[in-house]
Structure formats: C-alpha cells, structure tokens
C-alpha cells in the first residue's frame, strides 16, 4: 500500500483539477472535495506511514515505543477534515442560493462582478 499511495494521490489530484476546470458549479464542489481528500492523504503520506500502530500509549506504559504512527499529522488532518466539511457545506449552500438567484449553473455567467468596466 505504501508504494501505491503516491499514485492514488496523483489520481485524486488529477480528478479534482479536471472537475474544477469544467464550468459546472456542482462539478466545482465535487472537485474541491476530491482535492481535499488528496491533500489530506498527501499530508498523511509525506510524514511517513506506519502500518497498524496507532499513537495510543498502552495501559501500563507512560510513553510510546517504536514503531508508532506520527500523531502530529493526524491531529492536523483531523481538524482539516472537519473544517473542510464546514467549507463544503458553505459552498453547497452558496451554489443553491446562487442557482436560485441567478438561475444558472454556468460559472461563466457569474463573473460580471469580477470584470472591470471599460
């Protein structure tokens, strides 16, 4: 698994970017979620993975003994997952409101505020 993780990450990144490049709003959000997975896995992988050894101190011990998984990236990813959800929810609601207000799913129809007037 350690050896195929890089390919998995690459695949997820490619899929996420591909979806974002399309003009559809729903695809944009799905793409963002996939990018979130990819980034979490990237962080997880580059800090090295350890199979089957969670960073839990055994009952009788007072500190961890090798091998054990690095707890720091886990703490980072844990909050990233939850915050990611908050942002996704916000984005999903935003699409809905945008769709109801502008009656469009096309990102190109929503860029008028981004353009300078001549």
């Amino acid at each position: 698994m350690e050896d195929i993780l890089p390919f998995l990450i690459g695949g997820l990144y490619a899929g996420g970017i591909y979806l974002i490049l399309h003009r559809s709003f729903v695809k944009l959000i799905i793409g963002l979620i996939i990018l979130g997975y990819a980034s979490n896995l990237l962080l997880f992988t580059i800090s090295r993975v350890t199979r089957g050894a969670p960073p839990l101190i055994p009952e009788e011990a007072s500190q961890l003994t090798e091998p054990f998984a690095d707890p720091l990236p886990q703490a980072l990813i844990l909050t990233a997952i939850v915050i990611g959800f908050g942002i996704q929810a916000f984005a999903i609601v935003l699409i809905k409101v945008g769709y109801q207000a502008g009656d469009t799913d096309d990102l190109d129809d929503l860029n008028t505020t981004d353009r300078l007037e001549d």
């Binding site: 890089p6 990450i9 690459g10 990144y13 990819a38 992988t45 580059i46």
Partner: peptide, 19 residues
C-alpha cells in the same frame, strides 16, 4: 485532461521523491 494529468503526475512524483 492534459492539464490535470500533468498536475496529478507531478504530485505523484513529488510524493515519491519526498518519501
């Protein structure tokens, strides 16, 4: 497809080198 495949490939490469 080309853009995203290039990006995905580079990410894979980076992860492999880092690890």
């Amino acid at each position: 497809f080309l853009v995203s495949a290039l990006f995905g490939g580079i990410m894979t490469w980076i992860v492999m080198i880092v690890t």
